[in-house]
């Protein structure tokens, strides 16, 4: 087990597109253990993606289960994840282990379904909403070389849920 070094903006390697995982062996499971230890060592991250530690494979860890009142699928290892359905959109504030001292507003789908393999190679489909769906989209972006700063919208663009105005 080891805490791995996190790549930080403007490291060009964060823009690299990661390759699919093809072998589900012990090496993969060892790496996932290190990746999880790295996530836990940082500032309360709900997810981490392999390219953030310089391994350019499609591996994501997601865990929003420790947050109060947040629908979730528990601790998830998502290998070669693929979002197969999107619905709705909302703006929310995001930060990133790879982008210290900056948070910004990003529009994400509010409900998604995604397919992914687990560390043993088994294929699963997950339904996600809200915060967990946002976290999954944020992490999968890393696999495609995208950071949330590539998607930040103006703070003035108010796409939060609106109330009907009674005149």
């Amino acid at each position: 087990m080891a805490i791995l070094e996190i790549l930080k903006l403007p490291d060009e390697r964060l823009k690299q597109v990661s390759e699919p995982v093809e072998s589900f062996g012990q090496d993969l499971r060892d790496f996932i253990a290190d990746l999880e230890e790295t996530r836990q060592a940082g500032p309360a991250a709900v997810g981490i993606a392999a390219p953030q530690v310089g391994r350019f494979q499609r591996i994501v860890i997601l865990d929003v289960s420790t947050r109060p009142k947040t629908p979730n699928n528990g601790y998830l290892v998502l290998i070669n994840p693929e979002i197969v359905h999107w619905e709705g959109y909302a703006m929310g504030r995001e930060g990133c282990l790879s982008v210290p001292d900056y948070t910004g507003n990003v529009i994400r789908a509010t409900q998604i379904r995604l397919k992914a393999h687990d560390a043993e190679g088994g294929l699963h489909e997950y339904a996600m909403e809200g915060f967990e769906a946002r976290a999954a989209q944020h992490e999968i972006d890393h696999l495609d070389g995208l950071l949330f700063v590539d998607r930040v919208v103006s703070r003035r663009t108010d796409l939060y849920r609106r109330k009907v105005y009674k005149s």
Binding site: G42, G47, I48, T103
Partner: peptide, 15 residues
């Protein structure tokens, strides 16, 4: 007083 006021938490996602 006919002012619509809405407070919501800002959840910052760190990932």
């Amino acid at each position: 007083r006919d002012v619509s006021v809405d407070v919501s938490p800002v959840d910052v996602l760190i990932g």
